Amino acid sequence: MQTLKIKNMVCDRCIMSVKTLLDTSGIAYGDIELGSVPLKKELSAAKQKSLAEELESLGFELLLDKDYQYVEAVKNAVTKLIHQQESALKKYTISAYIEEMVGKDYKWLSSLFSNKVGDTIEHYVIEQKIERVKELITYDELTISEIAESLHYSSVAHLSNQFKKIVGVTPSNYKTTGKRKPLDKI
C-alpha cells in the first residue's frame, strides 16, 4: 500500500481539504493524519502528477524525496504535540516524542532536519510554542501563568523572555498589537 507524504498539512482543516480533494478525484484512502495519507491502491505516475498539481493549488506539496518526508514528519509531530496534545509535553521529552512519532533516532533526525531546513528542531519547537502562546493570548481565556504551565515552560519569566526574543514585544504588549502566523509558514 502506498502512503503519500504531504507538506503543509498542519491542522484538521488541512486534513479536510485533502480529503475533499481525494474524494473528488476518486482516490481511495485510509485514515489521514497530518502529513500522511495511506492509499488503498497505488497511483499511476500520471495520477500522482495530477494530484501533486491539485495539492499545490491548495498550498500543499506532495513530498517524493524520503529525506524531506522525514523532515515533514518531524514538523508534523512537533505541530501535533504543541497545538493538539499539550498534556504530552509533561509526559515526554520532545526528542522522545519525535522519535516515537517518526520511528527514527532523534540524533539522526536532528542532523537531517538541520541539513535540510537550515535550522534546528529545537528552534522549530520554540517557534511553534510561541505561535501557540500567541493563539492562547488571542483567545484571552488563560493567564500568562496558565499558558506557561500548559506549554511546560519552567516559569512565566522564561516564556516572556523567549516570547520577547522571537516576537519583539512582551506577551502583554502582544495582546493589544500582535498578529499570528499561519502554522505552515513557520
Rank of each mutant, 00 (worst) to 15 (best):
K164S: 14
K129P: 05
L183F: 06
N161R: 15
E53V: 09
V125Y: 04
A148W: 00
I98A: 00
F163M: 05
M9T: 01
A96Y: 05
L81Y: 02
E33V: 12
K90S: 12
D31M: 12
G59Y: 00
A52E: 08
D67C: 07
E131C: 09
D105W: 06
S17G: 08
S114M: 14
E61N: 07
G168E: 03
K185V: 10
D119N: 13
P171Y: 14
S57T: 08
K116W: 07
S110K: 13
D105L: 10
D184L: 05
Q128V: 07
T20A: 12
K41P: 04
Y124V: 04
L43K: 04
L4A: 01
T93L: 05
K90V: 11
I94G: 03
F163N: 00
E141W: 04
T170Y: 04
K47E: 11
K80C: 08
M101K: 10
F113W: 04
L62W: 08
P182Q: 14
E53H: 06
L39C: 11
I15D: 00
L4Q: 02
A45F: 11
H123R: 15
K47Q: 11
L62K: 06
I186W: 04
S95E: 12
I137R: 03
K7Q: 13
E146N: 12
D184Y: 13
E56A: 10
K107D: 14
L81D: 01
I82A: 02
T79N: 13
S25F: 11
L63P: 00
G178L: 06
P182T: 10
K41S: 15
V133C: 10
Y124A: 06
S36N: 09
A157S: 14
A28C: 08
K7H: 07
M101P: 01
P171E: 04
L159P: 00
S145D: 15
P38V: 05
Y106W: 08
I137H: 01
E42H: 14
I27P: 03
V74F: 03
E149A: 12
E131Q: 15
V37L: 08
K116L: 13
V78P: 00
A157H: 09
A88D: 12
E61P: 01
G168D: 03
T93F: 12
